[in-house]
């Protein structure tokens, strides 16, 4: 059982020092969770630490791909409002640098 960091991560680095198993690493400019090392914090903490400090909805997902912090759960912005904003501001509008 392990969690994973999804593409919505903004690489704020908040989760990395909180992991009790040093399971979060930087790889190729992204933060990734090592599925071998991640225990979902079982035995160390009541809550998974990465998902408890992460400020970005849907950034951390469980083994089934379900976000631990679903849309609306952290900012209070309703999912429909967030999705409309994302569609207007983040699709194609701002491009990747090489």
């Amino acid at each position: 059982m392990a969690y994973a960091i999804h593409a919505t991560c903004v690489t704020c680095w908040a989760c990395l020092p909180e992991c009790p198993n040093d399971a979060i690493h930087e790889r190729g400019g992204h933060l990734v969770i090592d599925p071998v090392l991640c225990t979902e914090c079982t035995g160390d903490h009541l809550d998974p630490q990465c998902a408890s400090i992460c400020p970005v909805e849907e950034a951390i997902v469980d083994a089934t791909g379900t976000p631990l912090n679903p849309l609306g759960s952290l900012t209070g912005v309703p999912a429909q409002v967030r999705l409309a904003y994302t569609a207007a501001h983040e699709s194609g509008g701002w491009s990747c640098l090489p």
Binding site: C9, T11, H30, L31, T75, S95, L97
Partner: peptide, 23 residues
């Protein structure tokens, strides 16, 4: 880059993302 609270006037997505490419 990291923060330990959320403010309703802050969008963490842009506060530290130098580039628009997620992650």
């Amino acid at each position: 880059p990291a923060c330990n609270i959320q403010c309703h006037y802050c969008n963490r997505k842009y506060s530290c993302a130098n580039e628009s490419r997620p992650g």
